[in-house]
Deep mutational scan, measured.
Amino acid sequence: TTVKLGDIKVTFDNPEKAKKYAQKLAKIYQLTVHVHGDTIHVK
Rank of each mutant, 00 (worst) to 15 (best):
Q30E: 08
K43L: 14
K24E: 08
Q30R: 10
L31W: 05
G37Q: 06
Y29F: 11
K24N: 07
H34D: 07
D7R: 15
L25P: 00
Y29V: 02
D13Y: 09
T11Y: 14
T2A: 05
I28C: 15
K19D: 04
K43H: 12
P15K: 09
H41I: 14
V42N: 02
L31Q: 01
T39V: 13
T1Y: 14
G6W: 12
V35H: 07
H34V: 14
G37Y: 05
P15M: 11
D7L: 14
A18Y: 02
K9H: 11
V35M: 09
H41V: 14
H41Y: 14
P15N: 06
F12A: 01
K27S: 09
A18C: 11
K20I: 10
Y29T: 03
T39I: 13
Y21W: 12
L31Y: 06
G6D: 04
K27W: 11
L5H: 07
N14Y: 04
I40F: 07
N14F: 05
N14D: 13
V42R: 01
I40W: 06
T39N: 04
K19R: 12
K20F: 09
N14L: 06
D7K: 15
G37L: 06
Y21I: 03
I28E: 07
H34N: 06
Q30I: 06
V33R: 00
F12D: 00
I40Y: 08
I28M: 13
Y29S: 02
I8V: 09
G6Y: 10
L25N: 00
L25A: 01
D38L: 09
F12Y: 02
N14G: 04
T39Y: 08
T11V: 13
I40N: 01
E16G: 07
I40M: 05
A26M: 05
A18V: 02
Y21C: 11
V35Q: 09
V42M: 08
K4F: 13
A18L: 04
Q30A: 09
V42S: 02
T1M: 12
L25Q: 01
D38Y: 07
V33F: 07
K27T: 08
V3W: 03
V33Y: 07
K24P: 00
D7P: 13
T39M: 10
D7N: 15
K43A: 11
V35Y: 12
Y21N: 00
Q30S: 11
V42Q: 01
D13K: 12
F12E: 00
F12P: 00
A26R: 06
D13Q: 11
L25S: 00
I8K: 09
L5V: 11
V42E: 01
T11A: 07
